[in-house]
């Protein structure tokens, strides 16, 4: 762990303990979306917040070690494509676009397998939201405001006047 950069030791230590738990909780929200409050979007946001916490505590390079930017961009498209493919499989197997083609039996009620395609759909959405929210955060934190012309002169004047 890099000692330089990022926030204080307390924050870093807490982050080290919490990041896995937050991610795990996000995955739980995603997978149990059809039984308890939550779902793909909420779970994805929670998972992304684990990476955002790492970015805040340690800085972007450490976050990229967990989830490289290129991989996040790929995951972003992959999640959406998976969702689309699940919808198309409904057309393929059941004859209607987005049909729930995985049958469920009455015994499976209130269990993980009770919702057919909703669980894979939630996972796909979660993947998409996780990576895109992380990317949005990274992009916003990478923005630098470039001040030119009159604005720069005004800032410099303010700096020189006591």
């Amino acid at each position: 762990m890099a000692a330089e950069g990022g926030m204080s030791l307390v924050v870093k230590t807490v982050t080290r303990w919490l990041k896995g738990l937050i991610f795990l909780f996000g995955m739980y929200i995603m997978i149990y979306g059809h039984l308890t409050p939550g779902g793909g979007f909420a779970g994805g946001v929670i998972c992304a917040s684990a990476f955002i916490l790492i970015t805040l505590a340690y800085g972007a390079p450490e976050a990229y070690r967990h989830l490289p930017r290129g991989a996040a961009e790929k995951l972003d498209s992959f999640g959406a494509l998976t969702f689309l493919i699940i919808a198309l499989l409904g057309l393929w197997f059941a004859g209607v676009f987005f049909r729930n083609f995985i049958g469920t039996s009455p015994e499976s009620h209130f269990r993980l397998t009770s919702a057919g395609v909703i669980v894979p759909c939630n996972l796909a959405i979660g993947l998409k939201v996780l990576s895109s929210l992380f990317l949005v955060f990274v992009m916003l934190s990478a923005l630098h405001i470039i001040v030119s012309g009159e604005g720069r002169r005004r800032i410099e004047r303010r700096r020189h006047t006591p």
């Binding site: 498209s77 959406a80 689309l84 919808a87 198309l88 057309l91």
Partner: peptide
């Protein structure tokens, strides 16, 4: 009749597929 949803599905699939492969 199944062509109706394809009007949305195809461009979306293309839009997500392009950034995945086009770096190479």
């Amino acid at each position: 009749i199944h062509a109706i949803p394809m009007m949305v599905v195809l461009p979306l699939a293309g839009a997500f597929f392009i950034p995945m492969v086009s770096r190479r």
